[in-house]
Each structure stands twice: as structure tokens, then as C-alpha cells.
Amino acid sequence: MSSPGSASASAPPLTPPPLPAAVLWDMDGTLVDTEGYWMDAETALVESFGGTWTHEQALTLVGSGLDRSGEILQDAGVRMAVPDIVAHLTRVVAARLSTEGNPFRPGAVELLQDLRAAGVRTALVTMSLRDMALTVAGQMGFDAFDLVVAGDDVTRPKPFPDPYLQACTALGVDPDDAVAIEDSPTGVRAAAAAGVTTIGVPLMVPLDGAGAHVLWPTLAGRTTDDLSAAHAARRTSRHEVHA
């Protein structure tokens, strides 16, 4: 039998890292795999005006604000005003969501449910229009979000930090205490610029070098504990740099 204080004595249990004050979710490509829906709508619209729209061109719009996307589609030959382009694309994608439901990315729903069970506040921070964001949130099947910040709620879209800063202000949390989950370089840059711990989960485009603090290949199997650990590691590293 080991004597008290011997090397084989049981170590005290490790204290788990604190929960983040809030977790901020991008929508298209992060929560739901709708990027293909947008690309299909863009392609059909450009072709209706006699133009061509390649997959490579479509990738350049991933994560961008809808007004900027509309301007690029005008350059591709769409002879419509930007607000009309945005409204058209939104109607087409919303119609697919209403008939086909939310095409959730693996692990997203389970992680959201785990966060809610742990009492962590959550927000949807998307450059899609509010009506579409509310449609997706309403099809979750549970009370998934405390807040929705949409593209028509902000003056400056991603990659500006404004959407994430606005979400933190509305939730009453310090950006340093929050975590964001993003799938695009544009979104990653926005969240990181806001001072939020940023977890990149790539879908259509790689995120290497975009500025994410952590890269996960998937959300499948991830839990609140994983988010807390990533958040704690980033904060520790940041504070050591500034010490």
C-alpha cells in the first residue's frame, strides 16, 4: 500500500476550463450546408442573362455580404439592380430551405444542443437576410439562439468585425469571452478582428492562413468541453504574449 504523499498517490482532479460567455455561429456553410444552394441560384441567374458562372467564380462569393455579391454578379452580366439580385437569390434559396429543410452540417445540431444544455448563450451571425436567418433558426426544432444578427442588421458586413461586435454588445459579453465558429476566410477574418476566439471548420474553401485560432475538420463529435478548451488555450496564449 502506498504511503500518504507518495508518488503513486492520486492527483487532485483537474479543474475543467471555464465555459465561454457566448458562442457565435455563422450560418451558411457552418450551421447549414447551403453554399451549394446559393451557387445554384447564382448560376441560374447569370445564365438567364446569357452569361456563364463557374464554380471558381462562385467560390469567391463564399462568406461575402450579399450586396457585394450582387455587384460581382452585375459584372458577370446580370442586368438587375443589386437589391433586386439580393432579393431574387434570397427567394430562391429560401424556397429550397422551406421545401427541403435545413441541410445541417455534421455535428452542428448536437453541439448547439450541448451548449444550450450547459447554459451557454448562442447567437446566429450571418450575412444572409434576417428573414432567411429566422427561417433557418425556426426550423431547428428547439430554442437554439438567444440572438440573430443578419446581413440587413449591420452597416459593414464581414470581413469587417462589426457583425460580431454587434452580437457581443447585444448579448452583453466581452468579445474576449466569446467563441465564433466559421467556415469561410471572410467570416474568420471578421470574428478574429472582433477579438473573438475563432474556430474554423472549412467547407468549400480552405482556411489555412485566414487567422482562425483553431481549425477543426468537422463539428461531428465536438462538445462544449472542446469549445471551452480551445477558448481557454487561446486566452492563455494571448495573455502570455501580452505579459
Rank of each mutant, 00 (worst) to 15 (best):
E182N: 06
A190T: 07
A167K: 11
V196A: 05
C168G: 05
L165Y: 02
T186I: 14
V205I: 14
A178Y: 01
L171C: 06
D177A: 15
G172F: 11
K158Y: 09
D162E: 15
D174C: 10
V154F: 08
D153N: 13
Y164N: 01
T198N: 06
T197W: 00
T169V: 13
G172N: 13
Q166M: 11
A190K: 09
P163C: 07
A192L: 00
L165G: 13
F160K: 08
T198A: 07
L171E: 02
D153A: 08
A178S: 11
P185S: 05
D183G: 05
V205A: 04
A193V: 00
P159K: 11
P157Y: 01
D153P: 06
T198D: 04
A170S: 14
P175A: 13
P185W: 01
I181T: 10
D183K: 11
V201M: 04
S184G: 10
D176T: 14
I199Q: 02
K158S: 08
V205S: 07
V201K: 04
G187V: 08
G172H: 13
D174Q: 14
V188Y: 12
A178P: 04
P159W: 12
T169I: 03
A170Y: 01
L203M: 02
V154I: 15
V179Y: 04
V154P: 04
V173R: 08
P161Y: 06
P157V: 04
L203N: 15
G187A: 11
L203R: 14
